[in-house]
Amino acid sequence: MADERDDDDAALFRSAVGPVRPLPDNAPPPAAPKPKPRARMAERDEEQARDDFRHALDVSLAGSGELEAGDALSYRREELPLPTFRRLRRGEISAQEELDLHGSDVREAEALLRAFLRDAREHGLGCVRIIHGKGRGGADYVDSRGLPVLKNLVDRLLRQRSDILAFHSAPPTQGGTGAVLVLLAPPLRRR
């Protein structure tokens, strides 16, 4: 009796629903996106340029402009007005952030300096101070010619950057020739 009832219920259901058609097969899930292409040649060129730059610190070149411990760092792009540079040189523009490279080796100092400048730029800072020391702290801070390694690294790296308007060794009250005040270009505004 139960079988007749189930058959009647099934027949009743089919008549109420009407004709049916099978559902289409499920579409396959989307494939994982392909990785973005990388500029491997540019990455290799960048790494090679960094290595060349690092090794250039120890290469002895006559008249290369290497700085001694007491020499002042100084650089100004032409578009920066001279009165603004004079204010920087006198220490009248206050540093908004500071990086101390004491105790860092050359590779670490370079990485710290690049990250610090990138962060300062991203946060819209106008002036920063970098303490590099005078190179009188021992053999770790001078090269084979007795020149201050970190000071020359900072000088070279700052001169290469397009976002640096000017820099000058700090006045004696702010670190003297063991520190440098850096004036950054304002960030570009996106339209």
Rank of each mutant, 00 (worst) to 15 (best):
A42R: 14
L101N: 06
T173I: 02
S94K: 15
D119K: 15
L153Q: 00
A27N: 07
T84K: 13
L183M: 15
A120W: 11
V142F: 09
I164K: 09
A10I: 03
R159P: 07
G63I: 01
G124S: 13
P81T: 06
P35I: 01
F53M: 02
T177A: 05
G135C: 04
V59E: 04
A185F: 06
A31L: 13
D3E: 10
A72I: 00
R54L: 10
A62K: 10
G63E: 03
A16Y: 10
C127G: 08
Y75L: 05
E122T: 04
P29Q: 01
D51V: 01
E98A: 15
V182A: 14
E43G: 05
P186W: 07
R90P: 00
G138M: 10
L153K: 04
K151C: 03
D52C: 00
A42K: 12
R121N: 10
V180I: 06
P33A: 10
D163H: 11
V128A: 12
Q96Y: 13
L57I: 03
F13E: 04
E68D: 02
A72W: 12
L188C: 06
A10G: 07
P29S: 09
G135L: 02
D52L: 01
R118C: 11
S15V: 08
T84I: 06
D58I: 04
A56Y: 04
R145K: 13
R14Q: 06
L184A: 11
L181P: 13
A170V: 08
L117S: 02
G124T: 05
L125A: 09
F85P: 09
P35C: 01
S162R: 14
L99I: 01
G135K: 09
V180T: 14
R77E: 01
A109M: 05
A185R: 14
A32I: 00
L82V: 10
R121V: 05
G135W: 08
L99T: 06
G176F: 03
I131Y: 02
S60A: 11
V17N: 06
L181K: 14
E98D: 11
I93E: 09
A2P: 10
R77H: 08
A109F: 06
H132T: 02
V182R: 12
D51S: 04
L82P: 08
S60V: 08
L158D: 03
A27W: 10
N152Q: 04
H168Y: 14
D143N: 15
V17Y: 02
L23G: 02
L82W: 07
E78W: 12
L150A: 04
E92V: 09
R44Y: 08
P148A: 03
G135V: 00
V128R: 11
R90V: 01
R191T: 03
S94M: 09
K134V: 00
S169Y: 08
G133Y: 05
T177L: 05
P37Q: 15
A16G: 08
R129G: 13
S162L: 02
I93M: 15
E46P: 01
E122V: 07
G103N: 07
A16L: 15
E92K: 14
R21M: 13
M1G: 14
R38W: 08
K134N: 00
R86H: 08
R191H: 13
K36V: 09
E97W: 15
G133L: 02
L157V: 05
K34D: 05
A49S: 04
D163R: 10
H123Y: 07
E47R: 09
L157W: 06
P83C: 10
G138Q: 07
K134P: 08
